[in-house]
Amino acid sequence: MSTATPPSVPHLDLLVPQVRHVPPEPGEATLAALYAHDESARGPATVRANMVASLDGAAWGPDERSGTINDAADGRVFRVLRALADVVLVGAGTARAEGYTPLDRPRGLEHLHGAPLELAVVTRSGRVPERLSGTDRPPFVLTGSDGAARARAGVPPERVLEVGSGTDLDLAAGLRALSDRGLTRVLAEGGPTLLAQLLAADLVDELCVTTTPRVVGPGPGRIVAGAPAPGAGRARVALPRHARLAHLLHAPQDEDGSPAGTTLARWLLPIV
């Protein structure tokens, strides 16, 4: 009997344990190089989405916050991604649930980017989260014509980007508006609804996914919402999408030294 491997069976690479270690270092030069932005973006901005999920696919823990399923390894990469970005893009619901406030460059990583880190909030209603309204560092607000007046009550008019008609939002137009302001490196931090909209519109260049060794059980949704919001279903490409793995990091220990197993993958979504 032949033992030859059929040509249709793929080879497998054992990525863990990895020969190359990336220990913590002042300035995080190695991680910054691993996550350097691709400057040959296909559009006016490069969109990198960063999400965390449990082993069984949950996007949040029992308190409906991602902080209960992430860990120190996720936090280390999270800091580098923010340090490299021009602007963080987040849905208003996630901004409220996660308690977003005006952003600063992560301490010790300011050398990776010379400009302030901006925040952009996506909201159909125009409601600006209370912790971001009336601050001396207001976010940009991406909203439609129906929400624009309400948004201007919470942030200065020049920070309101009207990028849709009625309650519909044109996220591509929103990215162009951010790019026109010099914000071309976009870090999308969710939530699942916003990520679903960005994917449906083929606006995500790469997806960074941390998988932590936690089992949450039934209840929480996954990192991509089950159904797009109104106006977000006019996808330019068919799903599912094919992605290419750029790298995979593995944290063998938790912050207290106990065995862990968190993986941090950077996936590239090529033009289709």
Rank of each mutant, 00 (worst) to 15 (best):
R181A: 03
L175C: 08
L187P: 00
E118F: 09
S133C: 13
E158N: 14
V163D: 00
E118A: 11
G134L: 11
C208F: 11
G108Y: 08
Q197I: 01
C208L: 05
T123Q: 02
A177S: 05
D180Y: 07
V204P: 01
V163N: 00
L195I: 03
L178S: 02
L183C: 11
R137H: 15
A188T: 01
L207R: 04
S145G: 05
L109K: 08
R150T: 15
A120E: 01
A201Y: 02
P139R: 04
L161Y: 04
R176E: 10
R176D: 13
L195M: 07
L178F: 04
G108T: 03
R176N: 08
D146N: 11
E118G: 04
A172E: 10
D136N: 12
S145I: 09
P106W: 05
R185G: 02
L112M: 07
E189Y: 08
T167A: 14
L203K: 01
T184H: 11
P138K: 11
L132D: 10
R152D: 13
G99Y: 02
G164S: 07
T143V: 08
A97S: 13
V163W: 00
D180I: 08
A201F: 01
V160Q: 03
E130N: 12
L169V: 01
L207K: 02
G191Y: 02
T143C: 02
L112D: 05
P106C: 08
P192I: 04
P192V: 08
L183T: 03
P116W: 07
P138C: 13
L207W: 07
G190E: 01
E158K: 10
G154T: 13
V128H: 05
F140R: 03
G164C: 04
S125M: 15
E118L: 11
T123A: 04
L103W: 06
E158M: 03
L112R: 03
G134V: 10
T167Y: 13
D180E: 15
G108Q: 06
E130L: 15
T184S: 13
G182I: 13
L109T: 06
D205S: 09
D104H: 14
E98S: 10
P102F: 03
A200Q: 12
A115W: 12
G174E: 00
R127K: 11
G147P: 07
V204C: 10
H113S: 12
E206S: 06
R124W: 05
L169M: 05
P157M: 12
L187S: 00
G114Q: 09
D104M: 12
L199S: 00
P129W: 06
V155A: 13
D136M: 14
G126P: 02
P192W: 05
L195T: 00
